[in-house]
Design a protein around this nucleic acid. Structure first.
Length: 401
DNA sequence: AGGTATTCACATGAAACTATTCTCTGAGTTAGG
DNA sequence: TAACTCAGAGAATAGTTTCATGTGAATACCTGT
C-alpha cells in the first residue's frame, strides 16, 4: 500500500505538469495586464485623477455583467492611484466592500462597520446603534485631510435587501465632513437597478457612469492567451484549444471568469489523465464537470423543503421519464414529508418553490392549459438522468428517507 | 356546424401570521489610572 | 471611570399560511340550420 502511494507520488513529481503556475488562473490572481479594458480604465482614471490634487472626484457608477472585469479594473486603477498619491504626497485611502457576501455587508450596520474596519477602526460586530457606528466612521475619516474612496461592489444586492437609505446617507456624508472628502464608486451587475432608486441618490451616485460590455469570443481569447502564457507550460497548450475555450465562454454571455475556470479545469482533467497537452476533449470534459459541480452545489445548498421537493421530482421523473404536473409532485411530496416526519407546506408555497427551482435552472417549468382539465405547470428536469440519480442517492441519505 | 358557457386544476396576489434574526439599551465586567 | 461585553426587549425580516381571485382552452351545452 505504502509502495503504491510512493509510486504514485513519485510519478506525479517526475511527470511534467501541464501547468507552469496554476495560481494565474485562479480568481484571486491579479494580472499585470488587462486586455481590452484600457478605455474603461482610462475613464476611471481620469475621473479619479482630481484626487491627486486633493479635490473630490465625482462619484462613479459602474455597470456590467459578471465576469466583465469591473472589479478588477477598479482595483487596478485604485492601486495605481494610490501609488501615485504616495509619490505626490496626497493622503488617500480606499475601502472596498463586497455587498454580496452574506454576514459581511448585507445590512446598513454591517456596511458602515465594514467600511470603518477597512479604514482601520475597530467596531464591535453588534451592540451599537447604527447612528453610533456612523459617528465612529465619520470621526475616523474626518481625522485628517484626505480623500476616501469607497467601493461598493454588487451594490444592487445591498439596495435590494436594505433599501437605498444607506446610499442616501453616504452621498450626503460629504456635507458633514470638515476635512476629509468622500468619493463613492458603485458597482452593479444590474443596470435596471439604478432606475428604481431614489432620484436624489441616482443623480449623486451616477455623476459618472461607465459601462463594461461583455467580452466577445476574440477578446476572451486574448485574455486567455495572456494568462495561459504564464499559467501553462508553452508546449502543453495551443491556440486552437484556447479559441475553443473562449468560444464556449462567449456563448455564456462573455464571462471571463467562466472562461478562466474552464481552462483551469481542462488543465486539471488533462493532468489527471496523464496527458501533457490540453486537448479539445479535455475542454469538453471540463465543461461537463463544471456544469455537474454547479448543479450539485445548487442542490446541496437548497433548504430542506426544497430538497424534499426536488427529491420527489427526481423520483417521479424516473418513473414517468418525462413531464410532471404540480399536483402530482405535491402528492409525492406530501408522502415523503409523512415518511420523514417533516411538516408539510401548503400547495401555495410549493408552487412558489417550484418556480424557484425553475429560476435556478434545475427544472424547466412552463405553464400550460389542458382545457377542461385545468391549468398547471408542465415540469421536466434539466438534469441528465445519471447525475440526478446520483443526487437522488445523496439526498436520500441526507434526508434520511 | 358554429357559438357560448362551464369547468378544471392549478396560478397568482395580497394580507395575516410566525419564527428567526437584528438592533438597541442598560446593566454588568474589565482594565487602566 | 471609561471602555467593553452581554443579555434581553423590542423591531425588522424572511418564510408560510390563508383567503381571494384569475386563467386558458377542452368540453358541455345550446341554437339555428
Amino acid at each position: 500500500m505504502a509502495d503504491e502511494l510512493d509510486d504514485l507520488f513519485d510519478n506525479f513529481l517526475e511527470k511534467p505538469s501541464v501547468f507552469e503556475n496554476k495560481e494565474v488562473l485562479l480568481l484571486r490572481y491579479f494580472p499585470s495586464k488587462i486586455p481590452h479594458r484600457s478605455e474603461q480604465i482610462k475613464k476611471i482614471g481620469s475621473i479619479l485623477a482630481p484626487a491627486l490634487r486633493n479635490n473630490k472626484p465625482s462619484n462613479i457608477f459602474i455597470y456590467g455583467k459578471t465576469g466583465t472585469g469591473k472589479t478588477l479594473c477598479t482595483q487596478y486603477t485604485l492601486n495605481k492611484l494610490k501609488e501615485k498619491a504616495e509619490l505626490a504626497g496626497t493622503k488617500l485611502c480606499f475601502a472596498y466592500l463586497n455587498c454580496k457576501l452574506k454576514k459581511v455587508a448585507d445590512t446598513e450596520y454591517r456596511v458602515i462597520a465594514g467600511l470603518a474596519k477597512a479604514l482601520g477602526e475597530k467596531v464591535p460586530i453588534t451592540g451599537l446603534p447604527t447612528d453610533e457606528v456612523y459617528n465612529i466612521f465619520i470621526n475616523k475619516i474626518d481625522e485628517t485631510d484626505q480623500i476616501i474612496i469607497i467601493v461598493l461592489d454588487e451594490i444592487d444586492r445591498l439596495v435590494k435587501k436594505t433599501g437605498d437609505e444607506i446610499l442616501y446617507s453616504l452621498t450626503r456624508l460629504n456635507s458633514e465632513l470638515k476635512r476629509a472628502k468622500l468619493c463613492l464608486i458603485g458597482i452593479s451587475n444590474d443596470i435596471r437597478f439604478i432606475e428604481d432608486i431614489d432620484p436624489r441618490v441616482k443623480s449623486s451616485l451616477g455623476e459618472e457612469e461607465i459601462i463594461f460590455p461583455p467580452y466577445n469570443a476574440l477578446e476572451l481569447k486574448d485574455i486567455l492567451e495572456e494568462r495561459s502564457a504564464d499559467a501553462f507550460r508553452k508546449e502543453s497548450i495551443d491556440s486552437a484549444v484556447l479559441a475553443k475555450c473562449a468560444a464556449y465562454a462567449a456563448k455564456e454571455h462573455g464571462d471571463a471568469r467562466r472562461a478562466l475556470d474552464l481552462l483551469r479545469v481542462a488543465g486539471e482533467v488533462a493532468e489527471r489523465e496523464d496527458g501533457e497537452i490540453v486537448l479539445m476533449k479535455h475542454i469538453k470534459l471540463a465543461e461537463e464537470k463544471i456544469e455537474i459541480n454547479r448543479i450539485s452545489e445548487i442542490v446541496k445548498t437548497l433548504p430542506t423543503q426544497s430538497k424534499l421537493l426536488i427529491y420527489s421530482i427526481f423520483q417521479l421523473i424516473e418513473k414517468t421519464k418525462g413531464k410532471l404536473e404540480t399536483g402530482e409532485i405535491y402528492e409525492k411530496y406530501k408522502d415523503l414529508c409523512n415518511l420523514n416526519n417533516t411538516s408539510i407546506l401548503t400547495q401555495r408555497r410549493i408552487s412558489d418553490l417550484i418556480s424557484e427551482l425553475d429560476m435556478l435552472g434545475l427544472i424547466n417549468a412552463r405553464l400550460i392549459s389542458k382545457g377542461r382539465h385545468g391549468r398547471t405547470r408542465e415540469i421536466y428536469s434539466t438534469i441528465p438522468l445519471d447525475l440526478s440519480d446520483k443526487l437522488k442517492d445523496e439526498l436520500k441519505y441526507e434526508l434520511m428517507l
